[in-house]
């Protein structure tokens, strides 16, 4: 449908200028099948090539195009303009992260936290690596939900606890830790729970639940963290009451 315009109010930050982030408005034509990312691409292609933002797959898989759209963390490739605009679409960089430029934020802190929970299958070196590790459908089902995480960081942008305490390991890293703990091939549960059973780990979470609300893949990190609290408590009690017993 031609002839309709929408105003994009985009937060801009130019690190070389030394100034504060400020909004810049762009009026663009739009159709009902356009997503917010299409709008940003239109601005970059036809109005202002200096606008900077991340994107890649355009299909909700890469997780790189996250931004706060009208105050809510969303994937811009999965958010239709028709669903969010009332004349204006306000696009901010994801909350709770330092801004590098315009809508691009610094994720380095998250990557450090993700590495701290060993997000891969851990095997004891002395184990027999020649045999096949068979998994049945129910084994996969145990961690399928958490394995859908695409590291888009929307959950961190929605988490007020992370906003107040940046040392908090956060929702996505916790969900991915549970994904590997629940994997029958994995033997690294003990080291992950040791990392997470700390003040900056899962106990920082006060179960606001907004991480699960904004998650575009229905990973439900809030529930994952509560499960980890249970597992960490059981591990602690086992170590207390049965020292020397296997941790899992």
């Amino acid at each position: 449908m031609a002839g309709r315009d929408v105003v994009f109010r985009v937060k801009r930050y130019r690190p070389e200028s030394g100034g504060k982030p400020a909004y810049q408005e762009y009026r663009i034509p739009y159709r009902d099948d356009m997503v917010v990312l299409d709008g940003l691409n239109y601005i970059k292609d036809y109005i202002d090539p200096t606008l900077t933002y991340r994107w890649s797959c355009r299909m909700g898989i890469c997780g790189s195009c996250g931004a706060n759209v009208n105050g809510t963390p969303r994937l811009t490739c999965g958010t239709y303009i028709r669903d969010v605009h009332k004349g204006t679409v306000t696009v901010d960089p994801l909350a709770n992260f330092p801004i590098l430029k315009d809508l691009v934020v610094d994720f380095d802190d998250f990557l450090t936290k993700l590495a701290s929970v060993t997000p891969y299958i851990v095997r004891e070196e002395s184990g027999d690596l020649s045999k096949e590790f068979v998994q049945y459908p129910e084994d996969v089902e145990a961690y399928r939900q958490q394995s859908l995480c695409i590291n888009c960081m929307l959950c961190y942008a929605a988490c007020p606890v992370f906003g107040a305490s940046p040392e908090f390991v956060g929702p996505a890293a916790s969900a991915l830790a549970l994904r590997y703990i629940r994997d029958t091939r994995d033997e690294g549960a003990d080291q992950r729970l040791a990392r997470l059973n700390t003040k900056s780990g899962i106990w920082e979470c006060t179960f606001v639940g907004e991480c699960s609300v904004v998650c575009p893949k229905d990973v439900d990190p809030a529930a994952a963290i509560q499960t980890l609290k249970f597992l960490a408590t059981m591990r602690h009690m086992r170590r207390l009451l049965m020292p020397g017993a296997p941790s899992r």
Partner: peptide, 24 residues
């Protein structure tokens, strides 16, 4: 290295949506 702009949380963040308000 480019200068990052640090994140600053607004004082009224919990009025941003009704779920934050319910949590508070």
């Amino acid at each position: 290295m480019a200068r990052e702009y640090p994140w600053r949380r607004r004082a009224g963040w919990w009025l941003q949506n009704r779920r934050y308000l319910a949590f508070q």
